[in-house]
Simulated scan of single mutants.
Amino acid sequence: MAVVTLLSDFIDGTSMALAEDTDAADLNAFMTANQGRLWASVQQRRQQRHQTIVRRGPGTVYFAADAAGAATVERYLNSETGSAEEAAAIQAMQAAGVEIAPHVGADRERDALINGRLRGLTAQAKAEGFG
């Protein structure tokens, strides 16, 4: 079964990754059928924990067609930014055919993505909330 993961960096310096199983054939099919569902789940979990829901620019969606691909995404999320382990995880995701796309959840994020005006992103914190 395919797994789709949404990774978002927030203005408080934290990151959150949320994954769910899907029957969708590819990323486009998932986003067409379930637009906004993952982002709504992230917002709900962060509000329950009294954390900000304001992101530092668009998030990233990873679509893994099988369990092996999903394992490469999880390995990537658990790697230190800029490390050799991260570079190897990115290559493993590419080899596994993981689809990667920006995720915009608000008009200002869409504007930042289209016009290239992303705020300075800090090094990715260890992803929390995976699963």
Rank of each mutant, 00 (worst) to 15 (best):
V3G: 01
S8F: 00
D9N: 09
I11T: 05
D12E: 12
D12G: 01
G13C: 03
T14R: 11
T14L: 10
A17K: 00
A19K: 12
A19R: 08
A19Y: 05
E20N: 15
D21N: 11
T22A: 04
D23L: 05
D23A: 11
D23G: 01
N28V: 10
A29D: 07
M31Q: 15
T32N: 15
A33M: 04
N34C: 02
L38A: 13
L38T: 08
S41Q: 15
V42F: 09
Q43W: 04
Q43R: 05
Q43A: 13
Q43C: 06
R45N: 14
R45F: 09
R49D: 14
H50I: 14
H50W: 14
T52I: 00
T52G: 05
V54I: 09
V54N: 13
V54A: 09
R55A: 08
G57C: 08
P58E: 13
G59Y: 00
V61A: 14
V61D: 04
Y62F: 13
A64R: 07
A64H: 05
D66K: 00
D66M: 00
D66C: 03
G69L: 11
A70G: 10
A70P: 05
A71K: 06
A71W: 07
E74R: 06
L77T: 02
N78K: 12
S79R: 04
E80L: 05
T81F: 01
T81V: 12
G82F: 10
G82T: 10
S83K: 02
S83E: 02
A84M: 01
A84D: 02
E86F: 00
E86Q: 07
A88P: 06
I90S: 14
Q91K: 15
Q91E: 14
Q91N: 10
A92Q: 13
M93L: 12
Q94P: 08
G97L: 10
G97C: 08
G97E: 14
E99S: 09
I100S: 09
A101C: 06
A101F: 07
P102K: 07
V104S: 13
G105I: 03
G105R: 14
A106V: 04
D107K: 14
E109Q: 09
D111A: 14
D111H: 10
L113Q: 03
N115Y: 12
G116N: 04
G116R: 08
L118W: 11
R119I: 11
R119S: 13
L121K: 05
L121A: 07
A123G: 03
A125L: 07
A125M: 02
A127V: 07
A127L: 06
A127R: 11
F130A: 01
